[in-house]
């Protein structure tokens, strides 16, 4: 094992982990605020990737405008899904709601295939190609930038929750809906906002992923990796999601680099099973505060 491989694998792992954390963040947001387990998070990612592709390649918009277009579509998608799919289900059992999100996932995937077909589409790289040398390792610049962009977006989200008025409102609703209502914080608005933000974070993850791979229906499979990440992180913790994403990303890359790339693909799910056995509430699962 040399420093060079180690550095390369670490950067690849961190980049993967940061993108995973972004994808999982949306899932955590929705779960935290609305207690809905969203099986369509991978599809949000897919739609994000394709929307950006459509705006950037098909419509030929400049990068920033394409990103803005993607954000607008993502917000609209989130709000529409919340309003017309989830809200009628308020008060239904958790299993029914989960089944509906599974169905929603199938519908969204189908619609994307109808519009864009099933073959992979190459997207001209947005992030510069080039390589940089770090500690003797030649690292592709785009991986590093993916890491930077994902980190910036994650920090922005974290600050939003911590500091902003709406972030506080979202946490308040997650904590005690009725009390939040007595402060004039409408749960409906917060629900819509969490779905919209989930779609936006998935969009960013989708665009970044599409940039380092390609725009294909396979982007959905990345959505499956959200589960090991959130279970590891503790389902309702933003910090846990980031740590969980990085652990999954790194372990996948290390196993792939030092042992076997095929085996690496199942590592996240082995971790998932292990964590469920030893610490089912995850690394950062919310400590239930009980005073008697």
């Amino acid at each position: 094992m040399n420093v060079e491989t180690l550095t390369t694998l670490t950067v690849y792992g961190l980049a993967d982990g940061a993108v995973l954390a972004l994808a999982a963040l949306g899932f955590v947001l929705i779960y935290k605020a609305t207690q809905v387990i969203n099986f369509a998070q991978g599809e949000f990612l897919l739609i994000g990737g394709y929307t950006f592709y459509a705006a950037f390649v098909l419509f030929g918009l400049p990068t920033t405008v394409a990103v803005l277009f993607g954000v607008v579509v993502a917000v609209a998608l989130g709000v529409v899904v919340e309003r017309f799919v989830l809200r009628p289900l308020v008060g239904e059992s958790a299993i029914s709601v989960i089944m509906v999100t599974v169905g929603l996932a199938a519908v969204l995937r189908g619609v994307m295939q109808l519009i864009f077909g099933v073959q992979a589409r190459q997207m001209p790289a947005v992030l510069p190609a080039g390589t940089v040398e770090v500690l003797g390792a030649r690292l592709p610049l785009n991986r590093l930038l993916v890491l930077v962009v994902a980190a910036v977006v994650l920090i922005a989200f974290a600050l939003f929750f911590r500091r902003s008025r709406h972030g506080v409102a979202m946490r308040a609703v997650a904590d005690d809906q009725q009390a939040a209502l007595t402060m004039g914080i409408s749960a409906r608005r917060v629900f819509a906002m969490s779905w919209a933000l989930a779609a936006v974070s998935a969009l960013v993850a989708g665009v970044l992923l599409a940039d380092i791979t390609a725009v294909t229906p396979d982007l959905v499979s990345f959505g499956l990796l959200v589960f090991p990440v959130v279970i590891l992180g503790g389902l309702d913790s933003v910090a846990g999601t980031i740590v969980g994403g990085i652990i999954i990303g790194l372990s996948e890359q290390f196993v792939s680099g030092f042992y076997d790339p095929g085996f690496a693909q199942i590592v996240p799910f082995i971790l998932l099973v292990v964590i469920l056995m030893v610490r089912p509430y995850g690394l950062f699962g919310q400590v239930r505060i009980e005073r008697v």
């Binding site: 506080v168 946490r171 308040a172 904590d175 005690d176 009725q178 009390a179 939040a180 007595t182 919310q286 505060i289």
Partner: peptide, 9 residues
Amino acid sequence: EGRHVFKHL
């Protein structure tokens, strides 16, 4: 009634 602070905030 029952205070209803946001416990985790």
